[in-house]
Amino acid sequence: MKKILGLTFFVAMIGVLVGWGMERKQKVQDKQEDTLEIMAVEPLPTPTARVMEQVSPDGRMMVSVNIKGEQAGIWVGDLMLMTKRLEPEEELLVPFNAWSPDNKYFFLERKIAGESEFWVMKATGEPFVEGGIYRVIAEPFTLAYPELTLVSVTGWASPTLLIINAKSENEPKISFWYEVPSKQFIRLSSYFY
């Protein structure tokens, strides 16, 4: 009797093991089929990532614009100051002379449809007194000097003075200083090449 019971138990165990093995094999096959199915799906287009960055003249600070798809992020070191959705034909550029000499401000060039405007920001990301964490230079310049066209912002003459080059129909080379704290444009007698 004991032998019969032992034999029955042995046969039952073999059956369980064979069943478990077949089930496992099926799962592996299913998984492989799933994997094959996933691989067969056409991959989504990955947005192209671009990083533009500029170190400060003393090497202590870094500003970067990270662009992925339509999204641009403005960073100072590990601090993200803002993100912006880019329009078609819009670019955010980091000029070589972006940093103010004391590392308190930086400026960026925004190009849209071939037209340039310039933003000034505080390195801390704090807003200016009038609100907003960046200040656009081109618009107030055009309001103050409607007869002139802002051509370029070349860099910083001092920790708070941005150098602006402009032109008119009669005068091709006119330079200004833009004093960041006071928001004043100061017309200069000599041109900054």
Binding site: P101, G155, W156, A157, F192
Partner: peptide, 12 residues
């Protein structure tokens, strides 16, 4: 080195 301006690439 110059710490008082950052207008390199231009006469200064």
């Amino acid at each position: 080195g110059a710490y008082w301006h950052n207008n390199f690439g231009h006469a200064m």
